[in-house]
Simulated assay, not measured.
Amino acid sequence: MAGVVEELVKKAGGCAVIDGGFATQLEALGADINDPLWSAACLITKPHLIKEVHMQYLEAGADVIISSSYQATIPGFLARGLLLEEAEGLLRTSVQLAREARDEFWKSTLRSSKPVYNRALVAASIGSYGAYLADGSEYR
């Protein structure tokens, strides 16, 4: 994997742009993330918004997009009343939405005159154990 990242940075002129402020962008699109699952709640309620945020970051020039799974955990989804299979599926969905956005963006740039030098990478966001607790303890 290191070789892929090195090649990306080389093609990007010495640095790579990573998306950021995912929750802020979700809120700008109307998502309510005042939830113990934070932005991962949208995996259940509004997955189309997650994909839209990924597309916005790609259009803005991100070389790496990060899945919306920082607060997504099996225990967190189980506490929400989901079954284990559903919880596992949502974790996979968080990555799949990013991959779909990346692939759709890449295909659209192949058909346009817009110069895109690379196919963005997808990184999984994995929160600390404290993030699962949803009490701010990841900061303590």
Results as ranks from 00 to 15, higher is better:
residue 71 Q to V: 08
residue 8 L to A: 06
residue 29 L to E: 10
residue 132 Y to S: 14
residue 110 L to W: 11
residue 44 I to P: 01
residue 77 F to C: 06
residue 49 L to Q: 02
residue 68 S to R: 00
residue 48 H to G: 13
residue 134 A to H: 08
residue 9 V to I: 15
residue 134 A to S: 15
residue 1 M to V: 10
residue 69 S to Q: 05
residue 109 T to P: 00
residue 98 A to C: 08
residue 140 R to A: 12
residue 45 T to W: 06
residue 78 L to E: 13
residue 134 A to V: 14
residue 139 Y to V: 07
residue 33 I to V: 15
residue 140 R to S: 13
residue 87 A to K: 04
residue 23 A to H: 00
residue 86 E to A: 06
residue 131 A to N: 07
residue 15 C to Y: 14
residue 62 A to I: 08
residue 80 R to N: 06
residue 77 F to V: 09
residue 87 A to N: 05
residue 18 I to C: 09
residue 14 G to M: 04
residue 8 L to K: 01
residue 89 G to A: 14
residue 81 G to K: 08
residue 25 Q to V: 09
residue 44 I to D: 02
residue 72 A to V: 10
residue 120 A to K: 09
residue 89 G to P: 10
residue 63 D to G: 03
residue 30 G to R: 11
residue 37 L to T: 09
residue 100 E to I: 04
residue 4 V to H: 08
residue 95 V to E: 02
residue 100 E to D: 15
residue 36 P to G: 08
residue 19 D to F: 04
residue 129 Y to H: 13
residue 101 A to S: 07
residue 67 S to G: 06
residue 112 S to I: 14
residue 75 P to S: 07
residue 53 V to T: 07
residue 3 G to H: 12
residue 15 C to L: 14
residue 103 D to N: 05
residue 128 S to N: 03
residue 45 T to G: 00
residue 76 G to K: 03
residue 39 S to P: 05
residue 84 L to S: 02
residue 59 E to L: 09
residue 112 S to M: 14
residue 128 S to E: 02
residue 41 A to S: 12
residue 66 I to A: 02
residue 83 L to Q: 11
residue 110 L to I: 12
residue 113 S to M: 05
residue 51 K to S: 12
residue 56 Q to S: 10
residue 99 R to I: 07
residue 2 A to V: 12
residue 61 G to H: 03
residue 109 T to Q: 14
residue 100 E to V: 06
residue 122 V to H: 02
residue 14 G to Q: 06
residue 14 G to H: 05
residue 106 W to T: 11
residue 25 Q to D: 04
residue 78 L to Y: 07
residue 97 L to D: 07
residue 107 K to Y: 11
residue 49 L to N: 01
residue 28 A to E: 13
residue 69 S to A: 11
residue 29 L to A: 10
residue 5 V to C: 05
residue 97 L to P: 02
residue 98 A to L: 09
residue 130 G to R: 07
residue 65 I to D: 03
residue 119 R to F: 04
residue 54 H to V: 11
residue 97 L to N: 03
residue 120 A to Q: 11
residue 27 E to N: 07
residue 80 R to E: 15
residue 56 Q to W: 01
residue 74 I to P: 00
residue 103 D to W: 02
residue 62 A to M: 09
residue 34 N to A: 15
residue 22 F to C: 06
residue 62 A to L: 09
residue 40 A to Q: 03
residue 10 K to W: 09
residue 126 I to C: 06
residue 108 S to G: 01
residue 140 R to M: 10
residue 18 I to F: 13
residue 98 A to W: 09
residue 35 D to F: 11
residue 90 L to C: 04
residue 55 M to W: 01
residue 128 S to Y: 05
residue 56 Q to E: 11
residue 83 L to M: 08
residue 7 E to D: 14
residue 88 E to F: 06
residue 105 F to T: 07
residue 53 V to P: 01
residue 38 W to D: 01
residue 112 S to A: 15
residue 103 D to F: 01
residue 101 A to P: 03
residue 15 C to T: 12
residue 31 A to P: 03
residue 30 G to D: 10
residue 106 W to A: 08
residue 113 S to L: 10
residue 104 E to M: 05
residue 53 V to M: 05
residue 94 S to F: 13
residue 40 A to V: 11
residue 130 G to C: 09
residue 108 S to N: 05
residue 100 E to S: 05
residue 1 M to T: 08
residue 59 E to Q: 13
residue 130 G to I: 12
